[in-house]
Design a protein around this nucleic acid. Structure first.
Length: 507
RNA sequence: GGCCCGUUCGUCUAGGGGUUAGGACGCGUCCCUUUCACGGACGAAACACGGGUUCGAUUCCCGUACGGGCUACCA
């Protein structure tokens, strides 16, 4: 690593909601930057005006905030020395034109005046000639209208008459391009495979290829970390740095493996059969009218989500799995990132949330659960809810399961688990549990100890009692938290009332 | 099709020339439990295939297969 200050950027384009793959890319950038005391920057790559989606930028910012992977510089997070952070704004500064002109001047880029029809024609021609990979390159450009084939006068005239043009990179015909990737090691590609990439579009906007390089240089980015889908164009990027005379100063590269869908093949799609969200927050796509549910809205904790994502393609080298942000930062390195794509596992994702649920304090959970009760017009004491959370959290993966799991803590049962009743309720039961009811009535200090003792004492007199039956009589359902804890929390008055109600209903 | 990247239990992964190939999720059995869980124990489950190199390959090399990515004036 050079002695450059560590500066990484996450540079999404605002073409839609940021999906979990993008979040992971942001996360790995963030973890590395923090690990090395560096900067983490959010840059918005909005050079394609036709694909701009309203609200996407706000979504990206909100998503990063929720995940707790906040840039210390960038759109939505405050300006640093390298503002602005939106490429559309940087274009106005003339940055990209400057770099493109530099490449033209050194003879490594050229003007091309071909219309899209002419380009289509070329492709068809090449296909007809059985060219395996039709592309605008060192061979085909000789038959096209560009500053390499046209005379100087003609070019001058075309430029002066404001004929639309693009600037293309002049890629050599046959040259080996080697570059080092921190994750993958050395990668070698022959330039014959690389086409003459458009650097500056006819609308004056740069393409990604030019823009990200100009910005990475200007913003003094030390490590360029992005998804594996960029690997094929990396050689072109190396060439651009080289022709700019900046190959030695260029950022170190790292291409992350992709996240694959859980079942079958391919990369993640917006909506997945697994039922788990693909987005951190709800994303409403205005053009299609569709809303994609988010992890947040599905009840996931941000730290659990981040932990899961970090372990998808990376590991600390030992058996640790539950790692909070600080620990992830402490241990992160690109050397320990896998090369192969990872299918993400919905079951394990839920398990992560369960682990974090258990780590939460009862008070914290109560705080989060209170609104659920309010939405159901249930008034409950905060201490009662806190105790409820203590009992119920062992049984849940999500806070949003709490109510279904323990509604009877707030509402007296009106029906009783039929299977349990059918199996365990008999002609003697009514008499037996009426006795138990009386003994409960007689308890003066209602707590777990006294309930337990009373229960056992009753058994010596009445014979073996059935705990599950008591559970059903008081809660209506067959399963739940520790029985005596539950009885204790609900209180003597409520419990005795519930038992008599049940006794009255059952024959 | 071409190019690039990849391939350890179903999934996420550790490991790395000689290991009973380790862990986690999920699954199954058992223990604990007068209820419900947690928990614990155990189990089934993997080095894609074929050639090399080597005394010895899951590990290194080459092929093949399979998977993924890219192949736009999109990122």
């Amino acid at each position: 690593m050079s002695d450059k200050k560590v500066r990484l950027r996450f540079a999404p384009s605002p073409t839609g909601g940021l999906h979990m793959g993008g979040v992971r890319t942001a996360l790995f950038n963030y973890l590395f930057a923090k690990k090395h005391g560096g900067d983490f920057i959010l840059r918005i790559e909005d050079t394609d005006q036709t694909r701009y989606v309203k609200g996407a930028e706000e979504y990206i910012i909100a998503a990063l905030k929720w995940c707790g992977i906040e840039p210390n510089e960038g759109v939505g997070f405050g300006d640093g020395a390298h503002k602005p952070y939106r490429q559309s704004e940087r274009k106005a500064l003339g940055i990209y034109k400057k770099y493109a002109d530099k490449l033209i001047a050194s003879g490594n880029a050229y003007y091309a005046f071909d219309t899209s029809e002419e380009l289509d024609e070329m492709r068809k021609r090449l296909e007809a000639a059985k060219v395996v990979a039709p592309q605008y390159n060192s061979v085909s450009r000789q038959n096209m209208r560009n500053s390499l084939t046209l005379s100087e006068d003609e070019v001058k005239k075309l430029l002066e008459s404001e004929t639309p043009y693009v600037i293309r990179l002049k890629v050599p015909r046959n040259e080996e391009i080697r570059f080092h990737d921190i994750i993958r090691g050395w990668v070698v590609v022959n330039s014959a495979q690389v086409d003459d990439k458009v650097l500056l579009k006819s609308d004056g906007m740069p393409t990604y290829h030019l823009a990200h390089i100009a910005d990475d240089i200007e913003m003094q980015i030390s490590h360029a970390v992005r998804g594996e889908e960029w690997l094929p164009s990396a050689p072109a990027h190396i060439l651009i740095y080289r022709y700019l005379g900046l190959e030695k100063e260029m950022p170190q590269m790292a291409h992350l493996p992709l996240i694959l869908k859980p079942d079958g093949q391919g990369k993640l799609s917006k909506r997945d059969k697994s039922g788990l969200p693909m987005f951190p927050l709800n994303w409403h796509d205005e053009s299609s009218g569709e809303t994609y549910i988010g992890y947040h809205e599905s009840g996931f904790f941000a730290d659990a989500f981040i932990n899961m994502l970090a372990l998808l393609g990376w590991n600390p080298g030992d058996n640790r799995e539950i790692m909070e942000k600080a620990e992830l930062i402490e241990n992160f390195s690109f050397e320990r990132v896998n090369k192969s794509g990872a299918k993400f596992d919905p079951d394990k994702t839920k398990w992560f949330n369960q682990q974090y649920l258990r780590k939460r304090s009862d008070a914290e959970l109560a705080e989060a659960f209170m609104p659920v009760l309010e939405s159901k017009n249930i008034k409950a004491d905060k201490n009662f809810v806190t105790e409820f959370c203590r009992l119920i959290k062992e049984k849940a993966h999500f806070i949003n399961e709490f109510y279904d799991l323990g509604f009877y803590f707030f509402i007296a049962p009106t029906s009783y688990d039929e299977k349990v009743i059918a199996k365990k309720w008999n002609e003697n039961s009514k008499a037996v549990y009426t006795k138990l009811h009386q003994k409960f009535e007689a308890i003066s200090q209602w707590n777990v100890e006294s309930i337990t003792k009373t229960f056992h004492d009753a058994e010596t007199e009445l014979g073996k009692l059935d705990m599950q039956l008591v559970r059903v009589l008081t809660s209506g359902v067959a399963g739940g938290p520790q029985l005596f804890d539950m009885l204790s929390l609900l209180g003597k008055e409520e419990i005795t009332k519930r038992i008599s109600t049940a006794l009255a209903q059952l024959k």
